[in-house]
Design a protein around this nucleic acid. Structure first.
Lengths: 341, 341
DNA sequence: CTGTTAGCGCTTTCAT
DNA sequence: ATGAAAGCGCTAACAG
C-alpha cells in the first residue's frame, strides 16, 4: 500500500482525517494534526500529483511554450531564462509551478499545444513568439484554456497579453537618428511572421512620417533574426547605391553579424554608419564601439507576467482583454553618431 | 458530462469498449472501432492526462531540470535548446513528452527536485550541470526515481550518465599547442563546482605530464563561466610576469570577453597569444581571428540522450551504471599559431 | 472532531 | 465482442 492510505493506516486514522490534517483544513484536533504531519515527514509521504489534479480539476502548474529551433527563441535565450526565473518567483508565492513546454521545430505548434492543453497537465499556458495572425490563440480561445500571450497579435478575441514596446523602440530610434541629422535610415526586420517584426516596422514608418521623411522601400531589409541575418543586412546595405547613414535592427543578434561584416570591409559603426540595436543583451556588451540599444527590466517583466498568469488562474474571465505594453528604454552609445555625408 | 463517458454515451457503448477501441486493444469489432474513432474525432475527445496516469502509475513525461540563472545554462542555452529539440525527436517516437523544469536560482536544487519528483508529474528526470559531488544524485538514488545525469559526478552509486569528453578536449588542446612549440599554456576554468570544470582541469594536468611539461599553478586561472569571466582571464594573463604563449578556456563564452579585452590592449589572438575555446557555438563564429574550439554533433547527442532516457523508463535497473563519454572534435583555427617568443 | 463514502477519468480484469 | 465493475490516490460532502 502506498500514499495517503498507508499513512492513514500507520496512524490508525481514516484517510479523510489525514487528508484534512495535511491540507490545513479546519476540524482537526491540533494534536492529531501534529501526529499526522510528523508521520508524513517520517514516512516521507508525498501526495500524488495525478490523484490530486484528477480530483481538483487543477494541476497548479503553468506551462510556457518555448519554440526550440526558432531563431528568436534561440537568440533570446538568456532573455527567456531570466524571464522564467523572475516569473517563478511570483508564481511560487501562490504555490504554482512553472514548466517549460519545448515545442520541437518539427512539430506543428497547434498540434503540440492541443496535445498539452488537452491532457490538462497545466492549468494555463503562456505562449511566446506570438504571430501576427496566430492560430494558437484562436485554438486556445475556442478551447477555453486560460492563456497569456507574450506578444500582441491581430488575431481577434478577448485575451490577455503583454508585449514589449517595439513601436516605441522604433520611434525612439528614428527620433534619435533624425535629431542627429540622419535622413536616410535603413531598417532590418526578421522575416518571420512574429508580430513584433511587424510592429517594429510600423513604428518605423509612423516615425518617419512624423518627421516628414519619405519611406524608401529600398531601405527596408528583410533577413533572418540571427547573427547570419546581420551579415546579410550588412551586405545588402553596402550594395545600396545611395547608402543610408544609419540602420536600425529588429533583432538583437543581428548586431553581431553586422558588426563582423562591417569590420571585414572596413566600415566602422558609428563613424561610417550609425547602428541602433534591439533588445539589450549581455552578448552585445562586447561589441566595439558600444551598441545603442533598448534596455528593459527583465526581472520586473517576469514578475508582471507571473502576476498576469495568476490573475488568469484566479479569474479567467476578468483577465480577458487585458493588454499591457512594457516600456523599453533607449540607451545611447557611440554606435550612433551624426552622419558624415 | 465530459471525457470518455460522454463519448461512450454518445455512441451508446460502454466506456470499457470505447477505451479499448481508442487504445488499439484487441477484442473490438472493426466496425465499432471505426465508429469510436470517428466519434472521438468529431467530439474532439482528448483523454485526461491525470486520469490516465493515475490508472497507469506513469505519466509518459520526462522532466529535464534546467538551472535558470546559472551562467553555464544561460550560456549554453542554444546548446540546450538544440539538445532538447533532438531529444524530443527520439522521445516522441515512443509517445513520451518532454518538459523542462526550470530551477530558480533562488531555489534549493534539492528542494526543487524533491518537489517535482514527489508529485510524480514526470516518470523520469534528466539532471544537468552535474556537480562533482552532487546531492541531487544521492537524493534521486535514494528516492528510486529513474534519472539520467548529463555530466559525470563523483557521487557514488549506479546510475546512467552521458558526458562530453572534456578530458579529451583538454588533452587535444595541449597536444595541439605543444606540437606547435608552446610550453607555457594557461588554462581558465569556471569557478563553479560543476564537474566538467574539474575534469577539464585534470585532463590538462595529465596532458602536460604526458609531454613532460611542468604544471605552473600560476597559469591555472579561475573565473566565472561567462563573457565577463573571459575579461577577467585576459586581465589576469596580461598581469603575469612570464606571460604564457597560449590559453585554453573552460567555458565557451569566455572567448568573447577575452577577445574583447585583448583587442582593447592590442594583443592579437593567434599572433600574440594562442587561444583554444571550448564548445563550438554560433555565438563564437564571428570572433576574429576565428577561434579554435571543439565541435560536437548536438543533434546526435540529443538523440542519444533520448534513447538513454527511454531505456531508463523501460528498465530502470538495466540502465544503471551505464556511462557514456561523447566525443568532441578539435577544430583548428587561426587563433592557434606557433609561439613567437 | 472523525469516519464513511462518492467520485474525479481512465484502464483493465472478469463475466457474459 | 461487449458490459459491468473495481480501483489508481486523492478530496470534499455528509453523517455521526
Amino acid at each position: 500500500m502506498t500514499g495517503i492510505k498507508a499513512l492513514a493506516q500507520h496512524l490508525d486514522l481514516s484517510i479523510g482525517t489525514v487528508s484534512r490534517a495535511l491540507n490545513g483544513k479546519p476540524d482537526v484536533k491540533a494534536e492529531t494534526r501534529r501526529r499526522v504531519l510528523a508521520a508524513a515527514k517520517e514516512l516521507d509521504y508525498r501526495p500524488n500529483h495525478s490523484g490530486r489534479s484528477l480530483r481538483h480539476g487543477r494541476t497548479n502548474t503553468v506551462g510556457l511554450v518555448l519554440e526550440t529551433g526558432s531563431p528568436s527563441t534561440l537568440a533570446g535565450d538568456t532573455f527567456f531564462m531570466h524571464l522564467v526565473d523572475a516569473m517563478q518567483e511570483t508564481l511560487a508565492e501562490e504555490g504554482l509551478d512553472l514548466v517549460l513546454l519545448p515545442c520541437r521545430s518539427a512539430d506543428d505548434p497547434i498540434e503540440f499545444l492541443r496535445r498539452h492543453v488537452t491532457r490538462r497537465m497545466v492549468d494555463s499556458i503562456v505562449i511566446t513568439a506570438t504571430r501576427r495572425q496566430d492560430e494558437r490563440i484562436a485554438m486556445l480561445l475556442e478551447d477555453g484554456t486560460p492563456f497569456l500571450a507574450l506578444g500582441r497579435s491581430e488575431t481577434p478575441g478577448a485575451y490577455p497579453w503583454i508585449d514589449l514596446d517595439f513601436a516605441g523602440a522604433a520611434r525612439d530610434s528614428v527620433d534619435a537618428l533624425v535629431r542627429l541629422g540622419h535622413r536616410r535610415i535603413a531598417i532590418a526586420a526578421p522575416r518571420r511572421d512574429v508580430n513584433l517584426a511587424h510592429i517594429y516596422m510600423e513604428g518605423y514608418r509612423d516615425a518617419l512620417a512624423a518627421h516628414g521623411l519619405p519611406v524608401d522601400e529600398a531601405l527596408i531589409l528583410r533577413a533572418s533574426g540571427s547573427e547570419n541575418g546581420g551579415v546579410q543586412v550588412a551586405e545588402a546595405l553596402l550594395r545600396l547605391e545611395d547608402r543610408p547613414t544609419a540602420v536600425m535592427l529588429g533583432q538583437e543578434l543581428m548586431a553581431i553579424g553586422l558588426y563582423s561584416h562591417l569590420a571585414q570591409v572596413g566600415v566602422q559603426p558609428g563613424r561610417d554608419l550609425s547602428v541602433i540595436g534591439f533588445r539589450q543583451s549581455p552578448q552585445l556588451r562586447f561589441l566595439s564601439p558600444a551598441l545603442a540599444c533598448f534596455a528593459l527590466d527583465v526581472r520586473a517583466l517576469g514578475k508582471e507576467v507571473g502576476q498576469a498568469v495568476m490573475a488568469l488562474s484566479a479569474d479567467p474571465v476578468a483577465a480577458r482583454g487585458i493588454g499591457r505594453v512594457w516600456p523599453l528604454e533607449y540607451v545611447p552609445a557611440p554606435s550612433v553618431q551624426p552622419p558624415v555625408r
